[in-house]
């Protein structure tokens, strides 16, 4: 049988991991953590954990995707270790954008206007990603953390709550604030 082919479909080859997946995983970790040292550490933890878990690899899906799944969980662990979510770390005083976006009655302020629709086509434009990155980076830290874990990494509420040891309602409040801010921020870039 074709050994080469078999290998790519269902077998892992740890001796080639760093060569094959190291850079892509590092790039992902760096984009997420914006700290080269932390990104290297997370990539190393990913490979070491993966090596211990080779028995659990189902053979379904590509080796790279499997490793990326492990990396995302290492990213959650890393975010928890930064202790931003500890009760002692305190809140972010100006983190709730509601006052700026709703009037006293709870209606959208006049300038909220979500008139322009974002066509999917804008995803192909480099300026869109530039604005998206800027808006993400402009979020208060905790909101940026949970938004990225939820929407970029695609982890579910449960995985994030367990990983960060926060309650679901806490997570949902942070996600909602992040979404309010991001819609406003993307809106302002729209008008440029």
């Amino acid at each position: 049988m074709n050994r080469q082919r078999n290998q790519s479909v269902s077998e892992l080859d740890p001796s080639k991991w760093v060569e094959r997946h190291g850079d892509v995983l590092y790039r992902y970790a760096l984009a997420r953590l914006r700290d080269p040292e932390a990104a290297e550490e997370v990539v190393q933890e990913t490979f070491v954990s993966a090596l211990r878990a080779v028995d659990q690899y189902s053979g379904q899906g590509a080796e790279g995707a499997w490793l990326l799944g492990i990396l995302k969980r290492k990213v959650v662990d890393h975010v928890r270790r930064l202790s931003r979510f500890d009760a002692a770390a305190g809140g972010e005083a100006d983190a709730d954008p509601s006052e700026a976006m709703f009037d006293a009655k709870g209606n959208w302020r006049a300038d909220a206007g979500f008139r322009k629709r974002r066509p999917e086509a804008s995803l192909e434009r480099e300026e869109f990603w530039e604005a998206f990155r800027k808006c993400l980076q402009g979020l208060p830290q905790k909101q940026a953390d949970v938004f990225a874990l939820r929407e970029v990494d695609g982890l579910n509420s449960e995985e994030i709550c367990n990983g960060l040891r926060i309650s679901a309602s806490n997570l949902w409040v942070l996600l909602h604030r992040a979404r309010l801010r991001l819609t406003r921020c993307m809106q302002s870039h729209d008008e440029d």
Binding site: W108, G113, F114, R115, R117, R118, R179, T183, M186
Partner: peptide, 8 residues
């Protein structure tokens, strides 16, 4: 407006 927010 809320519809716009939901889409966003």
């Amino acid at each position: 407006l809320c519809n716009g927010f939901a889409k966003q």
